[in-house]
Structures are given as structure tokens and as C-alpha cells.
Amino acid sequence: MAALRHPTTPGMSDLAASSPIPERRAGSQAWWNAVNAWLLLLPAAVLLITFTHYPILATIRHSLFITRRNGTEVFVGLDSYQAMAADPIFWKALVNNFWFALGTIPASIALALVMAIWVNRNMRGRSFLRLAYFTPTVLPMIAVANIWLFFYTPDYGLLDQLRGLFGLAGWNWLGEPSTVMGCLIVMVIWKEAGFFMIFYLAALQQLSPDLDEAASIEGASRWYTFRRITFPLLMPTTLFVAINAVINSFKLVDHLVIMTKGGPNNASTLLLYYIYEVAFTFQDSSYAATLTVVLLVLLSAVALVKFGYLDRRIHYQ
């Protein structure tokens, strides 16, 4: 979200240049403007550099060193990266993360849009419905994981009790590599969709009703109106939501601690969870730094696509 808040600096120097003041005064005016601008930027810059840029550089540096038991650092170059390339758990986590992203992002966005359109109409119990859709968002992830753990517990969990009604045998939902990822994806969609719905709802309420009326006078079907008018106008929101969904698919790991610890056999492990394990359980901070660099590169790539490509293709009102 921070990426979207970057201030667009208005052309201060243009303003100064166009004003008809004597040259010497114009020079000092420009200088003061520059000082002013930098002073205004200073608090944000200090925060960004201390908490974002410096840690990134330190992480990259740390990934090129290993720390001996006695605390001395030794330069090893790209050794950790080679070890990472040979680490099957890293690849497993990366591939899992890909499927997790693919499973959660489109589905939660589509669901959010449908829900927003649904609760944007005039109907009875609208506030109640909105609240119901939004509730999963306010729950902490740990609580969510515990609730769903109850659904997925083999034999006496809710899902298996339902299966029992149809005479089906219990299924070990989180204990089977084939189903564990699907189970987690469904849970995360449930958790995320309500949050994204709020953004769509806000965007829908900004749209002018004139457009809808004009379209219906022209005889456009509802689907056509949605496809050619509503959805394109919602694109800025969709982009924002999509970026958030991508970031979340890399940073949501709390549920793993409660539900699977990444198992069985790493079938549900995600990159960030693996980083946590390496850093804190194995106390290997340099390898954790190496993995973190990969995560950084992935997320930077997402940001690049957003700013370099998508922003230019989207119509902002």
C-alpha cells in the first residue's frame, strides 16, 4: 500500500520560473523552494531510509556473508545463493507460493466484486449483509485458523461430519498433501474477500448513476453495462486490490503456525514461513537473508509491473 502513496511532486520550479521577478531574487526563491521541499520530505525520507531502504541493503549484504558461531562474519560471495538453488525445500516453498497466489488472488477478487455489487443495491438487511461479509476481515488470522482447524479436523471436524451424513468416510484434510493447499486457499479467500469488497463498494458508490441511466436508455443489457462501463471504471480499484492480494499471498503465513507448520512434508509451506523457520528455528540468519532477498526481488518485480506498465493502461477519473 505504501507504494501507492508516493507523492506526486508538482512542478515547483516551473512555477518559480514563470513568475516575473528579477533574476537574483528568482535564484534565491528557487533555492528556498528547494530547501522547503527537502524539509517537507525529510520526515518521510528519514522513516523510509531507516525502516525500508537501509534494512534492504543490510539484508543484501548479510546474504553474502556467513556468521560463525563465535560471531565473526566471513565473506562467502554467492555461496548461500548456490546452496539455495540446491535446496529442495526452497523450491517447494516457491512453487507452493505460486499456487497459493494463483488460487487466492483471482478468486478473492472476483468474489469481492460480486459481493460488493450485491450489497450495493437497495434492499432489506443490507447493513447486516455488509457486516457479515466484512467480519472475517476483522478477525485475527490466528483466530481464523483455529476456527477452520475445527472444520478440517479428521473424523469429528465439521466437514467430516457433513461427509458422514452422506455415508462417506472421514478425510484427513490437512494431513494429505493433495488437499492441504486447497483447504488453506479456501480459508484465505474467505478471509480476504470481505476486505476487498469494502474497496469495491466504496468505488461503486463513487460511480455516477447517470452512466447507468444513459446505458439503460440506450438499451444496453445489464451484463453489457457491467462489462463496458462499470468494470472499466472500477479498474483503478481492481489494480489496487490486485496488488494487495499479491502482497498478501506472500505475507500471510500466521495460519501455517496453527494449522500445519508447513506440513505434511512441506506440502503447505510458503516462502515467508520457510524464512521464519530458517531464521528462528535453525538460527541461520545469513541463509534467511538470502531467502529474503528472493522475496524482495519477487515483490519488487510486482511493483515494477504496476508502476511501469499497468498504471499507464488504466483510466483514472
Binding site: I89, G263, P264, N265, N266, A267, E277, T281, F282, Q283
Partner: peptide, 30 residues
């Protein structure tokens, strides 16, 4: 030494075998 890591490797192998994603021999070899 490196107990945390070794436990993870062995636990992973056990889970790979009981879930049928690898044969015991392969899982333990890895």
C-alpha cells in the same frame, strides 16, 4: 549438531512416506 534442521529433514521424510508421496527408501535417502 544442528538438531532443529535434522529433525525437520527426518520429520519431512516420515510425512512424505506416510502420505504416500515418496517410498520410505527414497524419503529417507533424501
Amino acid at each position: 549438531h544442528e538438531n532443529g534442521r535434522i529433525y525437520k529433514f527426518v520429520n519431512d521424510a516420515v510425512q512424505a512416506a506416510v502420505t504416500g508421496s515418496q517410498k520410505p527408501q527414497e524419503a529417507l535417502a533424501s
